[in-house]
Design a protein around this nucleic acid. Structure first.
Lengths: 131, 131
DNA sequence: GTGGGTGCAAATACTTTGCAACCGA
DNA sequence: TCGGTTGCAAAGTATTTGCACCCAC
């Protein structure tokens, strides 16, 4: 169904996301997009983000606090700061790549796997030193 | 500070969690613990879970929907069902184990890494067949 | 007795949803 | 015109917090 119609808002959200290396929350996207669409609503941002995730055009990263969104859909890992919650791509070439997808261990068939690294980001570490 | 005093509620929460292989949400723990402590409040459950996480006695698993808690603190991975949200331990011995912790890639020092597998669990797959 | 812990309820944070108006095909 | 999309606001879900009372030490 859902014959998917063009929308400037959706386009703006996607291109905003594509132009970034970090992984903004819905609210950050909303705030920023308001520059071009002063009347856009947060609901619209959430609706379009969900839609894009469903379409496989972006990824949702669920962490502590608000969800974050990532326009890079090729497999990669994330570094997540325990202090400020920021998320950054990690392109570590693992010696032995993550086990292939589509295997089963009795729990169910694996469709995707993700590796996440936790720590305190440089920026937070710096500001901690000053205090 | 916080001279940590004994509490029957905290004890009950921890032992409940230790006796399980799955990874209940705060609300599931609350509902179940009410059998022994009819007056316990959800706030107390949340407070104690946070405390136990801080103490390193349990782990919090942030997923879509409600957070889940895990009394198994030795390193392991999780299978997360995209349909029902259940979380199960995966003890796959990866050929080449996850990169050692305590390395840095310019983002910050890694203190922990987690691997998560996503898919549809057997149980959900079964019920889907019937419909 | 003192300070940490508890129950309760209100508050917060994040996300979803109903609805009438709007706009792209 | 038709049906997907939007803005707005209200509702929903998950979690945190203020406060007076209670209990472990």
């Amino acid at each position: 169904m859902a014959a998917l119609k063009y929308s400037r808002q959706r386009e703006a959200i996607k291109s905003y996301l594509c132009g970034r290396e970090d992984h903004p929350t819905a609210d950050m996207i909303y705030t920023s997009i308001r520059g071009d669409f002063p009347n856009i609503s947060l609901g619209t941002v959430y609706r379009n983000l969900s839609l894009l995730v469903e379409l496989g055009e972006i990824r949702k990263i669920t962490t502590d606090g608000a969800d974050r969104f990532d326009a890079r859909i090729t497999p990669h890992s994330h570094f997540i700061c325990r202090n400020c919650g920021c998320v950054m791509d990690v392109m570590v070439p693992l010696n032995d790549p993550v086990p292939q997808v589509n295997q089963s261990w009795g729990h169910g068939e694996v469709e995707e796997c993700r590796m996440e690294f936790y720590g305190i980001c440089e920026q937070c570490k710096q500001s901690a030193k000053c205090s």
